[in-house]
């Protein structure tokens, strides 16, 4: 149970890192300012989680 929980948590953080990567990629490729703001806003909580701040 312990081992499975650890694996799931690791997978979760890898998934978060992947989402951050995708968001940054989309931010770079974005052509409109509205989407850029949206990507920045959505990125913040994911970064807070990835850096284990919140």
């Amino acid at each position: 149970m312990d081992f499975l929980t650890t694996i799931v948590t690791i997978l979760y953080y890898l998934f978060i890192a992947y989402i951050v990567f995708i968001l940054v990629l989309n931010l770079i490729k974005s052509k409109t300012w509205e989407k850029e703001i949206l990507y920045i806003i959505v990125l913040i909580p994911f970064l807070l989680r990835l850096f284990r701040l919140k």
Partner: peptide, 21 residues
């Protein structure tokens, strides 16, 4: 524009992160 928005994002992110920490 992306750099400016990212900088604004960092201005929000850094103090929030410090506060939570």
């Amino acid at each position: 524009r992306k750099i400016i928005f990212s900088a604004i994002g960092l201005i929000l992110f850094i103090p929030a992160g410090i506060s939570f920490y």
